[in-house]
């Protein structure tokens, strides 16, 4: 299959997968928390996946042809992270700002998530080719290295939100550390 078609197919698979996940969440006993957790979890998977393109492309140059997919995964991840926040504000708190503030007051994990999401906003806005040209590739790349701040914060947020240390966020963090170590070693 040609890269373009495969990328389209992968996007379709992601769309269907997310729809299935959301439909399952809606049927859960506690729709609000299921939707919140599902969107948050998938945001972490997809955002982490964007960081794998460079190391994987280094070892398997053929994969570089799929680089446009990185942008798509990043945008999916951003959309889910936004949805995650909006579900928290609407379904979970019903716009009760005072209660939300109480929840945030002194609770590190919420701030980690919020900062991560804020950092992703400029990245989503400049994820198109036009913005890339306007900024110049070097500037654009500098901006997008914010990923290396946002994703660790997001995964820290995931880890700390659980009652106990669970396997999944730890696994994601292990992958992240591997990417960071690889990056450090291959830095020019």
């Amino acid at each position: 299959m040609r890269p373009k078609r495969l990328i389209l197919a992968i996007n379709l698979v992601i769309l269907l997968l997310l729809l299935g996940q959301m439909l399952a969440a809606i049927q859960a006993s506690d729709m609000a928390s299921e939707l919140r957790d599902t969107s948050g979890r998938w945001a972490s998977y997809l955002l982490l996946a964007t960081m794998l393109f460079t190391p994987l492309g280094y070892y398997r140059p053929v994969l570089r042809r799929y680089l446009p997919l990185r942008r798509h995964l990043g945008l999916w991840g951003f959309a889910l992270a936004m949805m995650h926040l909006l579900i928290w504000v609407t379904l979970e708190f019903g716009f009760a700002w005072a209660l939300m503030w109480q929840e945030m007051d002194g609770n590190l994990f919420i701030w980690l998530g919020l900062v991560a999401l804020l950092l992703l906003v400029p990245l989503a806005l400049t994820s198109n080719t036009r913005a890339m040209r306007k900024l110049g590739y070097r500037n654009w790349q500098a901006w997008h290295s914010l990923t290396y701040v946002a994703v660790p914060l997001a995964l820290g947020h995931y880890l700390l939100a659980q009652k106990v240390v669970t396997a999944e966020p730890v696994l994601l963090l292990v992958v992240l550390v591997m990417v960071l170590v690889w990056r450090y070693r291959h830095a020019h």
Partner: peptide, 21 residues
């Protein structure tokens, strides 16, 4: 008295939306 990682000021009522004190 908050949990070290989250607030105990309000609670989510399972099966409905929004929070209560």
């Amino acid at each position: 008295f908050d949990h070290p990682r989250w607030s105990q000021a309000s609670e989510r009522v399972i099966g409905s939306f929004g929070r209560q004190k």
